[in-house]
Amino acid sequence: MRGNERWLLELMAGTLFLLLLVRACLEDLRRREIPDRIGVLLVAAGLCCHIAGISPPGCGPGPLEFSERLAGFFCVSIPLGTAACLAPGSFGGGDIKLCAAGGFFLGWKAMLSAGAMAVLSAGAAVAVFLLTGRISRREGIPFGPFLCLGMTAGFFLGEELARWYVGK
């Protein structure tokens, strides 16, 4: 594959990924639900990227191995799923599926960064909302927008953020 073709494929895949995240964010804000088709499209985009040998800009210089994508699928979705089982209502199924699909697209390093950023930013937002009286302790907020924010950061800066988190 020539440089121009590769660049165009990377641009198309990245644009699709970011547009799907925007859609997921808007759906979660509006309906408190993330449609399954968004996750399916993210996984399909990840498979196409794997076959074409391309990776997001924040995922290092070379293409992601299939094992890195598979690890990305599970590395944040399993902890979220476990939390949802232990504390019902903490996370919805759409959040968990979005994490899995986004992780398959991004790979495990970028997805760990994305998950950490999502949890930290959501925690900060909840603290502000509680302190200002915008929500009560019994109310929840949609987590999807914070996942989308984290995955966007992971898309552009995933490996760099992962190194910063672990202090290397």
Rank of each mutant, 00 (worst) to 15 (best):
R6I: 11
C59G: 06
L8K: 11
R31M: 08
G123E: 15
S136D: 14
R23W: 00
G123N: 15
L106Q: 02
T152M: 09
M1V: 07
A45P: 02
R138I: 06
L19Y: 02
L80V: 04
C85F: 13
F73W: 13
C85I: 09
A100R: 08
A45Y: 00
P56Y: 09
G89F: 12
S113F: 08
E5W: 10
P88V: 01
G39T: 13
G107T: 03
C85Q: 12
G60V: 05
V126F: 06
R138M: 02
G140L: 13
F155L: 05
G123W: 15
L131Y: 14
F104Y: 10
E27A: 03
G115M: 04
L19S: 01
R6E: 13
R134Q: 15
C49V: 09
V22Y: 06
G154R: 08
T132N: 10
G3K: 14
A162R: 07
F104Q: 06
I54F: 04
G93H: 08
R32L: 13
M111H: 07
L11C: 08
I78N: 09
E5Q: 12
V76I: 15
A116H: 10
F129V: 04
A125G: 04
S90T: 13
A52F: 09
F146S: 09
C25T: 14
R30N: 03
G123M: 15
I96P: 03
A101E: 02
I96G: 04
L131D: 13
K109R: 15
A100N: 12
G154C: 11
F17L: 13
P61T: 13
I135E: 11
F143R: 02
E68W: 08
G133R: 11
E10A: 09
L19M: 08
A153F: 04
S67E: 14
C99D: 06
F91G: 08
R69N: 02
N4P: 01
L9C: 05
A110F: 03
R163Q: 13
P61C: 09
C148M: 11
R138F: 02
G102C: 01
A87G: 02
I135K: 10
G62F: 05
E160N: 14
C48E: 02
R163D: 14
A44C: 08
T15F: 14
M111G: 03
L157G: 01
F129N: 05
I34S: 01
F129G: 03
P79Y: 10
A13Y: 04
G81L: 02
L41G: 04
L80K: 05
L20N: 01
F73S: 05
L70I: 11
G39Y: 14
R2E: 14
T82R: 10
F74H: 07
G158N: 03
V40E: 10
S67R: 15
Y165R: 12
F143K: 01
I38N: 00
S121D: 11
N4I: 10
R2D: 15
M111V: 07
R69V: 00
C85V: 09
F129W: 10
P56E: 13
A122D: 12
E65W: 12
L29Q: 14
A114Y: 00
E5I: 09
A13R: 00
A84P: 03
I34F: 03
G102V: 02
C59S: 12
V22L: 13
G14F: 07
I38D: 00
G144N: 07
G115N: 05
L8E: 14
A125Q: 07
G62N: 11
E33A: 01
G107W: 03
